[in-house]
Design a protein around this nucleic acid. Structure first.
Lengths: 183, 183
DNA sequence: GCGTTGAAGTTGACAATGACAACATCAATC
DNA sequence: GATTGATGTTGTCATTGTCAACTTCAACGC
């Protein structure tokens, strides 16, 4: 029962910090509070994360993993809807992932997690034969669903109607054509 | 020269805080530092802003004003490009505006500033006759350019080519159709 | 067995911040 | 010419992220 050494504090911290993040948001996520919830002293986290940003980066990378899971085995509009659904179900996690406070070049693990998600997206578009430029289309599709998710989260799009229906409608209104050459 | 009373401290604070925001980003924006730069004591800001969030909300509202100006007299793809350009030129301001930490119902001035921008967008689409559902199309268009801006800012879209060209291409690849009724 | 060692946790500090309370200044008004 | 209320100031406090120094304990070589 001697628990001077925790065993798997790193996971425990990710768990408690993840709870705090999803409950209270990025700004209220205190390193010390996460340590408290994990039952360790306020400085224990520094054995596993070099600083607060490192913990946040780990949480964000975890988020990209969750997102990838949510998109798995989906394609086209269904994938787009799943993207938005993920954002609405994990608003604070999603915001952290795209907060911009975590520079990809400073957090390689985060960069590769995010990159993997994008790759899956491009692959899905590459499978669709009727699209001229999969890379551009994938970028456009990602932009669309990402922007939609964010604007919904921030409350900018008045969703008088049912939210799911609105999302379907917005996504459904868009077509991807071949890229135009010059003006 | 007796400057016990500043004269227009509110604007001065918005100015210095705006500088700090654009220079160093949202996280590093200290209330006390803004006061320092404005040449007043660390508590003077509280006479004009009830707390840090109130100052941030004012900065964000200012940002929506700037954005509206950048979109003025533009329409269609040109407007979309201007939107992205604004985000890239004022990354930290843009991030603040959509950070999600400012709830619109708690900051009425911000809500109306943001609403005005959206209205302008919808109006631009309403003017285009060949679009079936301007509201939905406007939401989709906003989503597209907003997501594109954010993903570019965060460095998720590898822009091997020229950035402006890439933006044009992505925006150009999208068409807005009439909304589909059910599946 | 037993001493060593190094990773994992702890205690104790420190400067900085956002916020509150009490006080000071000064322009306008009666 | 006193009052007063908005605007600034000084002083204080709890909290936070981070650094430094100390402790615990499991694994390893001998």
């Amino acid at each position: 029962m001697s628990t001077y050494h925790h065993g798997d504090l790193r996971s425990a911290l990710l768990h408690s910090a993840g709870e705090l993040l999803e409950e209270q948001g990025l700004e209220s996520l205190r390193l010390r509070e996460a340590a408290r919830r994990a039952g360790v002293s306020h400085n224990a986290p520094y054995r596993h994360f070099s600083d607060r940003d490192a913990l946040l980066a780990a949480l964000a990378a975890e988020g990209f993993g969750m997102l990838a899971g949510a998109l798995e085995n989906r394609a086209g509009r269904e994938m787009g809807e799943a993207y938005v659904r993920f954002a609405l179900e994990h608003p604070n996690r999603f915001r952290l992932m795209f907060s911009g406070r975590l520079q990809l070049d400073r957090h390689p693990a985060l960069a590769s997690a995010a990159g993997a998600t994008y790759e899956a997206l491009i692959a899905a578009f590459r499978a669709q034969r009727d699209i001229a430029d999969p890379e551009t289309a994938a970028a456009a599709a990602w932009s669309l669903v990402h922007g939609l998710a964010q604007l919904l989260l921030d409350g900018h799009l008045a969703s008088a109607k049912d939210r799911n229906a609105f999302v379907r409608e917005v996504i459904g209104t868009v077509r991807f054509a071949a890229a135009q050459r010059s003006a």
